[in-house]
Simulated scan of single mutants.
Amino acid sequence: MQSATTPIVNIAAYKFISFDDTQEKRAEFQAICKELDLKGTILLTPEGINLFLAGVRASVDRFLAWLRSDARFTDIEVKESYSDDQPFKRMLVKLKREIITMKMPLIQPEKGRAPAVDAKTLKRWLDAGVDDAGKPVVMMDTRNAFEVDVGTFDNTLDYRIKKFSEFPEVVAKHKDELADKTVVTFCTGGIRCEKAAIHMQNIGYESVYQLEGGILKYFEEVGGVHYTGSCFVFDYRTALNPELEPSGEIRCRNCDAVVKPSEQASPLFIYGKFCPRCAEG
Protein backbone atom coordinates (compact mmCIF):
# COMPACT_ATOMS: atom_id res chain seq x y z
CA MET A 1 0.00 0.00 0.00
CA GLN A 2 1.19 3.53 -0.78
CA SER A 3 1.82 5.90 2.10
CA ALA A 4 0.11 9.25 2.51
CA THR A 5 3.36 11.02 1.62
CA THR A 6 3.97 9.15 -1.64
CA PRO A 7 3.68 11.53 -4.62
CA ILE A 8 0.85 10.52 -6.91
CA VAL A 9 1.28 10.68 -10.68
CA ASN A 10 -1.86 11.76 -12.56
CA ILE A 11 -2.04 10.93 -16.25
CA ALA A 12 -4.46 11.93 -18.98
CA ALA A 13 -4.35 10.41 -22.45
CA TYR A 14 -6.53 9.65 -25.43
CA LYS A 15 -6.28 8.31 -28.95
CA PHE A 16 -8.78 8.13 -31.77
CA ILE A 17 -8.32 4.70 -33.33
CA SER A 18 -10.61 1.88 -34.47
CA PHE A 19 -11.21 -0.21 -31.35
CA ASP A 20 -13.75 -2.93 -32.08
CA ASP A 21 -12.89 -5.30 -29.21
CA THR A 22 -13.74 -3.01 -26.33
CA GLN A 23 -16.00 -5.57 -24.66
CA GLU A 24 -13.25 -8.18 -24.61
CA LYS A 25 -10.56 -5.71 -23.52
CA ARG A 26 -12.59 -4.25 -20.66
CA ALA A 27 -11.81 -7.14 -18.33
CA GLU A 28 -8.09 -6.85 -19.10
CA PHE A 29 -8.08 -3.13 -18.28
CA GLN A 30 -9.95 -3.78 -15.05
CA ALA A 31 -7.50 -6.50 -14.04
CA ILE A 32 -4.30 -4.54 -14.70
CA CYS A 33 -5.61 -1.45 -12.91
CA LYS A 34 -6.63 -3.52 -9.89
CA GLU A 35 -3.25 -5.24 -9.82
CA LEU A 36 -1.42 -1.89 -9.93
CA ASP A 37 -3.75 -0.13 -7.46
CA LEU A 38 -4.62 2.58 -9.98
CA LYS A 39 -7.75 4.67 -9.70
CA GLY A 40 -9.60 6.85 -12.19
CA THR A 41 -11.70 6.37 -15.29
CA ILE A 42 -11.02 4.69 -18.63
CA LEU A 43 -13.45 5.02 -21.53
CA LEU A 44 -13.31 2.34 -24.22
CA THR A 45 -15.20 3.23 -27.39
CA PRO A 46 -15.33 2.06 -31.02
CA GLU A 47 -13.56 5.33 -31.96
CA GLY A 48 -10.74 4.99 -29.43
CA ILE A 49 -9.72 5.37 -25.80
CA ASN A 50 -9.76 8.14 -23.20
CA LEU A 51 -8.28 7.79 -19.73
CA PHE A 52 -7.62 9.66 -16.50
CA LEU A 53 -5.62 7.60 -14.02
CA ALA A 54 -3.61 8.17 -10.86
CA GLY A 55 -1.19 6.07 -8.84
CA VAL A 56 2.44 5.80 -7.76
CA ARG A 57 5.11 6.22 -10.45
CA ALA A 58 6.02 2.54 -10.74
CA SER A 59 2.38 1.54 -11.25
CA VAL A 60 1.73 4.24 -13.85
CA ASP A 61 4.85 3.26 -15.77
CA ARG A 62 3.88 -0.41 -15.74
CA PHE A 63 0.37 0.41 -16.96
CA LEU A 64 1.68 2.53 -19.84
CA ALA A 65 4.13 -0.19 -20.85
CA TRP A 66 1.25 -2.68 -20.88
CA LEU A 67 -1.01 -0.32 -22.85
CA ARG A 68 1.68 0.47 -25.43
CA SER A 69 2.29 -3.24 -26.00
CA ASP A 70 -0.95 -3.09 -28.03
CA ALA A 71 0.10 -1.84 -31.49
CA ARG A 72 -2.92 0.46 -31.64
CA PHE A 73 -1.66 2.45 -28.66
CA THR A 74 2.12 2.32 -29.09
CA ASP A 75 2.29 6.06 -29.80
CA ILE A 76 -0.35 7.29 -27.34
CA GLU A 77 0.74 10.60 -25.81
CA VAL A 78 0.36 11.24 -22.10
CA LYS A 79 0.04 14.42 -20.05
CA GLU A 80 1.23 14.26 -16.43
CA SER A 81 0.63 16.20 -13.23
CA TYR A 82 1.31 15.38 -9.58
CA SER A 83 -0.54 15.45 -6.29
CA ASP A 84 0.13 14.47 -2.69
CA ASP A 85 -3.08 12.47 -2.48
CA GLN A 86 -5.05 10.13 -4.72
CA PRO A 87 -7.61 12.37 -6.51
CA PHE A 88 -9.94 9.50 -7.46
CA LYS A 89 -12.00 7.35 -5.12
CA ARG A 90 -12.46 4.32 -7.36
CA MET A 91 -11.48 2.68 -10.64
CA LEU A 92 -14.00 2.60 -13.50
CA VAL A 93 -13.63 1.10 -16.96
CA LYS A 94 -16.62 2.14 -19.06
CA LEU A 95 -17.86 1.22 -22.52
CA LYS A 96 -19.27 4.14 -24.52
CA ARG A 97 -20.22 4.96 -28.12
CA GLU A 98 -17.94 8.02 -28.38
CA ILE A 99 -14.91 9.34 -26.54
CA ILE A 100 -16.71 12.67 -26.33
CA THR A 101 -20.34 12.90 -27.40
CA MET A 102 -20.87 15.08 -30.46
CA LYS A 103 -23.54 13.02 -32.25
CA MET A 104 -21.85 13.49 -35.63
CA PRO A 105 -20.63 10.03 -36.67
CA LEU A 106 -19.07 11.25 -39.92
CA ILE A 107 -16.43 13.16 -37.96
CA GLN A 108 -13.65 10.61 -37.48
CA PRO A 109 -10.31 12.05 -36.30
CA GLU A 110 -8.62 8.72 -36.99
CA LYS A 111 -9.02 9.38 -40.73
CA GLY A 112 -7.45 12.82 -40.61
CA ARG A 113 -7.03 15.67 -38.16
CA ALA A 114 -7.38 19.39 -38.59
CA PRO A 115 -4.10 21.33 -38.40
CA ALA A 116 -2.70 21.60 -34.89
CA VAL A 117 -0.63 24.30 -33.23
CA ASP A 118 1.75 23.46 -30.39
CA ALA A 119 1.87 25.43 -27.15
CA LYS A 120 5.07 27.36 -27.84
CA THR A 121 3.92 28.44 -31.29
CA LEU A 122 0.55 29.50 -29.91
CA LYS A 123 2.22 31.62 -27.23
CA ARG A 124 4.27 33.33 -29.93
CA TRP A 125 1.12 34.01 -31.95
CA LEU A 126 -0.70 35.38 -28.92
CA ASP A 127 2.30 37.56 -28.03
CA ALA A 128 2.09 39.08 -31.51
CA GLY A 129 -1.70 38.94 -31.89
CA VAL A 130 -1.32 37.36 -35.33
CA ASP A 131 -0.24 34.02 -36.79
CA ASP A 132 2.78 33.50 -39.05
CA ALA A 133 0.74 34.65 -42.06
CA GLY A 134 -0.24 37.87 -40.32
CA LYS A 135 -3.88 36.93 -39.70
CA PRO A 136 -5.47 37.94 -36.37
CA VAL A 137 -5.65 35.00 -33.95
CA VAL A 138 -8.87 34.25 -32.05
CA MET A 139 -9.15 31.62 -29.32
CA MET A 140 -12.33 29.51 -29.19
CA ASP A 141 -13.24 27.54 -26.05
CA THR A 142 -15.03 24.27 -26.85
CA ARG A 143 -15.73 23.38 -23.20
CA ASN A 144 -18.95 23.67 -21.25
CA ALA A 145 -19.79 27.01 -19.63
CA PHE A 146 -19.11 25.93 -16.04
CA GLU A 147 -15.59 24.82 -17.05
CA VAL A 148 -14.90 28.12 -18.79
CA ASP A 149 -15.93 30.01 -15.66
CA VAL A 150 -13.03 28.44 -13.74
CA GLY A 151 -10.48 29.81 -16.21
CA THR A 152 -9.76 30.31 -19.90
CA PHE A 153 -7.50 32.10 -22.36
CA ASP A 154 -7.72 35.88 -22.40
CA ASN A 155 -10.28 37.35 -24.83
CA THR A 156 -11.53 33.91 -25.80
CA LEU A 157 -14.77 33.17 -27.65
CA ASP A 158 -17.10 31.46 -25.19
CA TYR A 159 -20.50 30.41 -26.56
CA ARG A 160 -21.87 29.28 -23.17
CA ILE A 161 -22.65 25.75 -24.30
CA LYS A 162 -24.04 23.31 -21.73
CA LYS A 163 -22.90 20.16 -23.54
CA PHE A 164 -20.55 19.48 -26.43
CA SER A 165 -23.31 18.23 -28.73
CA GLU A 166 -24.51 21.89 -28.89
CA PHE A 167 -21.22 23.04 -30.40
CA PRO A 168 -21.85 22.27 -34.11
CA GLU A 169 -25.00 24.38 -34.33
CA VAL A 170 -23.56 27.26 -32.32
CA VAL A 171 -20.29 27.49 -34.22
CA ALA A 172 -22.05 27.46 -37.58
CA LYS A 173 -23.89 30.66 -36.62
CA HIS A 174 -20.62 32.57 -36.15
CA LYS A 175 -18.72 31.47 -39.25
CA ASP A 176 -19.13 34.68 -41.25
CA GLU A 177 -17.89 36.98 -38.48
CA LEU A 178 -14.68 34.93 -38.19
CA ALA A 179 -13.97 34.71 -41.92
CA ASP A 180 -10.83 36.86 -41.79
CA LYS A 181 -9.43 35.34 -38.58
CA THR A 182 -7.31 32.34 -37.64
CA VAL A 183 -9.33 30.43 -35.05
CA VAL A 184 -7.59 28.20 -32.50
CA THR A 185 -9.94 25.77 -30.75
CA PHE A 186 -8.98 24.40 -27.36
CA CYS A 187 -10.23 22.28 -24.46
CA THR A 188 -8.81 20.59 -21.38
CA GLY A 189 -6.66 17.92 -22.98
CA GLY A 190 -7.34 18.08 -26.72
CA ILE A 191 -10.22 15.64 -27.27
CA ARG A 192 -13.09 18.05 -27.90
CA CYS A 193 -11.09 20.32 -30.19
CA GLU A 194 -10.04 17.28 -32.27
CA LYS A 195 -13.66 16.94 -33.33
CA ALA A 196 -14.48 20.66 -33.18
CA ALA A 197 -11.76 21.71 -35.60
CA ILE A 198 -12.68 18.99 -38.12
CA HIS A 199 -16.32 20.03 -38.02
CA MET A 200 -15.37 23.67 -38.52
CA GLN A 201 -13.31 22.75 -41.57
CA ASN A 202 -16.22 20.72 -42.92
CA ILE A 203 -18.62 23.68 -42.74
CA GLY A 204 -16.25 26.12 -44.39
CA TYR A 205 -13.92 27.69 -41.83
CA GLU A 206 -10.78 28.39 -43.85
CA SER A 207 -8.21 28.93 -41.08
CA VAL A 208 -8.80 26.79 -38.01
CA TYR A 209 -6.37 24.97 -35.72
CA GLN A 210 -6.63 22.83 -32.62
CA LEU A 211 -4.34 23.40 -29.64
CA GLU A 212 -2.15 20.31 -29.42
CA GLY A 213 -2.62 18.68 -26.02
CA GLY A 214 -5.12 21.27 -24.82
CA ILE A 215 -4.79 23.57 -21.83
CA LEU A 216 -2.91 21.03 -19.73
CA LYS A 217 -0.13 20.68 -22.30
CA TYR A 218 -0.01 24.47 -22.66
CA PHE A 219 0.46 24.80 -18.90
CA GLU A 220 3.14 22.12 -18.96
CA GLU A 221 5.15 23.75 -21.75
CA VAL A 222 4.70 27.52 -21.36
CA GLY A 223 2.84 28.12 -18.08
CA GLY A 224 -0.10 30.49 -17.69
CA VAL A 225 0.81 33.41 -19.97
CA HIS A 226 -2.29 34.66 -21.85
CA TYR A 227 -4.49 32.55 -19.55
CA THR A 228 -6.55 33.74 -16.57
CA GLY A 229 -7.68 31.41 -13.80
CA SER A 230 -7.33 27.65 -13.50
CA CYS A 231 -8.25 24.64 -15.61
CA PHE A 232 -11.20 22.53 -14.51
CA VAL A 233 -10.43 18.81 -14.32
CA PHE A 234 -12.84 15.93 -13.76
CA ASP A 235 -11.41 14.57 -10.53
CA TYR A 236 -11.35 15.51 -6.85
CA ARG A 237 -8.71 18.19 -7.41
CA THR A 238 -11.44 20.15 -9.28
CA ALA A 239 -9.03 22.60 -10.93
CA LEU A 240 -5.30 22.98 -11.66
CA ASN A 241 -3.33 26.20 -11.81
CA PRO A 242 -0.70 26.87 -14.52
CA GLU A 243 1.87 25.09 -12.33
CA LEU A 244 -0.37 22.00 -12.63
CA GLU A 245 -1.12 22.10 -8.90
CA PRO A 246 -4.59 22.04 -7.29
CA SER A 247 -5.79 25.63 -7.23
CA GLY A 248 -8.16 25.43 -4.27
CA GLU A 249 -11.53 25.39 -6.02
CA ILE A 250 -13.97 22.69 -4.94
CA ARG A 251 -17.35 21.54 -6.23
CA CYS A 252 -20.49 22.17 -4.21
CA ARG A 253 -22.09 18.83 -3.38
CA ASN A 254 -25.54 20.39 -3.45
CA CYS A 255 -25.63 22.31 -6.77
CA ASP A 256 -22.40 21.06 -8.41
CA ALA A 257 -21.08 24.60 -8.94
CA VAL A 258 -17.35 25.27 -8.75
CA VAL A 259 -16.64 27.25 -5.57
CA LYS A 260 -13.57 29.49 -5.58
CA PRO A 261 -11.42 29.91 -2.43
CA SER A 262 -12.79 33.44 -1.87
CA GLU A 263 -16.36 32.07 -1.95
CA GLN A 264 -15.46 29.35 0.55
CA ALA A 265 -14.94 32.09 3.15
CA SER A 266 -18.56 33.18 2.84
CA PRO A 267 -21.02 32.38 5.66
CA LEU A 268 -23.22 31.04 2.87
CA PHE A 269 -20.75 28.20 2.28
CA ILE A 270 -21.02 25.02 4.33
CA TYR A 271 -18.86 22.21 2.97
CA GLY A 272 -20.93 19.29 1.80
CA LYS A 273 -24.23 21.19 2.18
CA PHE A 274 -24.45 24.41 0.17
CA CYS A 275 -22.50 27.29 -1.38
CA PRO A 276 -23.25 31.00 -1.98
CA ARG A 277 -24.77 30.24 -5.39
CA CYS A 278 -27.29 27.63 -4.33
CA ALA A 279 -27.93 29.25 -0.94
CA GLU A 280 -29.07 32.45 -2.62
CA GLY A 281 -30.87 30.69 -5.46
Rank of each mutant, 00 (worst) to 15 (best):
S3V: 10
S3H: 12
V9H: 15
N10A: 10
I11E: 06
I11K: 05
Q23P: 00
E28T: 06
A31E: 09
I32E: 11
I32W: 11
I32N: 10
E35D: 12
T41M: 07
I42F: 00
L43V: 01
N50S: 01
L53Q: 02
A54K: 02
A54M: 09
V56F: 01
A58Q: 09
S59K: 00
S59L: 04
D61H: 04
D61Q: 09
F63S: 00
F63M: 02
A65M: 12
W66P: 04
L67P: 03
S81M: 03
Y82S: 09
S83Q: 09
P87G: 09
P87S: 10
K89H: 09
K89D: 11
M91G: 07
L92I: 04
R97L: 11
I99Q: 00
I100Y: 00
K103Y: 03
M104L: 15
Q108M: 13
P109T: 05
E110V: 13
E110T: 13
K111M: 09
R113C: 06
A119D: 02
K120Y: 03
K123R: 15
R124Q: 15
L126V: 09
A128Q: 12
K135G: 11
M140D: 05
D141S: 02
T142L: 03
A145C: 06
F146M: 09
D149P: 07
D149Y: 09
G151V: 08
F153H: 06
N155W: 06
R160L: 07
I161G: 02
K163D: 14
S165K: 03
F167G: 02
F167V: 01
A172D: 08
H174I: 15
H174T: 11
D176W: 02
L178H: 15
D180R: 08
V184H: 03
T185R: 05
F186R: 00
T188W: 05
G190V: 11
R192T: 02
C193D: 01
C193E: 00
C193M: 02
A196G: 08
Q201R: 10
Y205S: 08
E206K: 12
V208P: 07
V208W: 01
Q210N: 13
E212C: 04
E212S: 11
I215F: 08
Y218D: 04
F219S: 07
E220S: 13
G223K: 02
G224A: 08
G224I: 03
G224F: 10
Y227N: 05
T228V: 09
T228W: 00
S230E: 14
V233Q: 06
D235C: 03
Y236G: 13
N241R: 04
E249I: 12
E249T: 08
N254A: 12
N254L: 05
A257R: 09
V258L: 12
S262E: 14
S266E: 13
P267R: 05
P267K: 06
Y271L: 11
Y271K: 13
F274P: 00
C275N: 05
P276F: 12
R277Y: 15
A279P: 01
A279C: 14
G281H: 12
